[in-house]
Nucleic acid binder design. Structure first.
Lengths: 247, 247
DNA sequence: TGCGTGCTTTGACAGAGATCAAGTGGAAAC
DNA sequence: GTTTCCACTTGATCTCTGTCAAAGCACGCA
């Protein structure tokens, strides 16, 4: 993923964040305006950042940690509809009211921009609009991939799909080679996984136990996962090819 | 919805299509270039327009009829991931390979643009990129709404949700008033509805029968639906407010 | 050390929806 | 008029996942 403001971060010396989507320090031309409208916010795990229906006077992107978008029905059923990883964008230019709850799933730092000036900047800086379009299309693809998971996969396949996504994301950061076991920490509680997958937390727990028993994965503690054979996991997920999730 | 090329269609005299998303005839400045790269295609109900994995050398928008995006797993399970109504956009600038099957659900006319020139035009015409961003964000919202439907709603609520969407879309075209019964034809087979909702066609049929029995809807024939009380239907769908679906 | 609290696991059971299997009805074709 | 075909409906049964309940485990706190 290329940053909105600049592709190359190598000369990004005094940038405190170095995350990939928004890095105003990297672009001298836009720096001055942005300093006025940009700020950082930190959240603790579990904190709600925005409530559905709230006025949204900023947009922003995730610097570190994980945030989630969730929808809740009157009777309390909730469905996660987005998982925001570092560099992902929150908020929509032109929208006043937040349509989802946004929650910090882990401790989180966001880089926020006041909405009005950001919109103006977008009007005068075409490559921001282009970059935003690209990111939105990626998110749309990811959402559609999830619709297949939610609509047609079994509980076991759902879990395998989720693990596969997280593994691949971490792999792209921590590993170069394509073989060997993959190791990572689950950034989600069982309940959050259930909300993402349209399951109950009990079913999530049972299926994780089953995958462990069948040696598709192994667990150290509750959250630390080792995947001995990524191909095997992807078979379990029902993915036909290695193309796929774009989260 | 405003068109990509021009907001106001009142002076769109010789435009043969007059659909809302793309109407090249409306904009004199862009006309000449576009005449070279624009063409129409018709499809019969059931025809596949693009296979997943195909090279895509065009983008376009739906003029009339309904198209669907579907994903299929190796074993044949299929999930619809998008429903394209007139004015909706197909294809993605910058993408070579189609990620989904695109099928004509009803008889269909599309307005297509060769991809390369369209991309160039987009580069030089900022408002096209902006419009596309807006449409993509709308689609993303609709996809996320569907994730709630797929993940957390019961079969009955799913059917009610789908009917509610179709009713509201038709209502926005055919009705001005907000009360009174709503009448429309289902543009989908039971199987297509099932693929959209992550159900089997038998369950779809049973739930439609149940809604009929409970007088939430009434049917003339298999496809012609009357909704006596829209509020009642939305209750059945589990929608808490009238805000909602953006398909 | 002991105790609560939050997250997780596991068990027993029930129910919503899938699966398998006929059967209906209407429209086009012969 | 009859046949054929296709979309749809309905029934019987099975099974996966949800629900309710209890218990385990790790960690912080008194």
């Amino acid at each position: 993923m290329t940053p909105i403001f600049k592709v190359d971060h190598t000369n990004c010396q005094d940038c405190p964040i170095r995350h990939r989507a928004v890095c105003a320090h990297c672009d001298a031309d836009e720096l001055e305006e942005l300093e006025e409208i940009k700020y950082y916010r930190s959240f603790e795990a579990g904190q709600t950042i925005i409530w559905s229906g709230d006025q949204m006077n900023f947009v922003g992107s995730v610097v570190s940690g994980i945030a989630s978008l969730t929808q809740t029905m009157e009777d309390g059923r909730t469905q996660m509809v987005g998982l925001l990883l570092p560099s992902d964008f929150v908020g929509r230019p032109g929208r006043e009211i937040a349509p989802y709850d946004v929650q910090a799933t882990t401790d989180l730092v966001m880089c926020c921009f006041r909405k009005k000036p950001f919109e103006e900047l977008m009007g005068t800086t075409p490559h921001i609009a282009h970059r935003l379009l690209q990111m939105t299309l990626d998110e749309l693809d990811a959402a559609r991939e999830w619709m297949l998971v939610l609509g047609r996969k079994t509980a076991r396949e759902k879990i395998a799909s989720l693990l596969s996504i997280i593994a691949r994301r971490d792999a792209s950061i921590s590993k170069k080679g394509n073989s060997g076991p993959i190791v990572f920490d689950l950034p989600l509680t069982r309940e959050a996984m259930a909300d993402y997958l349209g399951l109950t937390l009990e079913t999530v727990s049972r299926q994780i136990s089953a995958l462990k028993k069948d040696q598709v994965i192994s667990l150290q503690g509750k959250r630390h996962v080792t995947i001995p054979d990524m191909g095997r996991l992807m078979e379990e997920a029902g993915d036909d090819s290695d193309g796929g999730f774009l989260v």
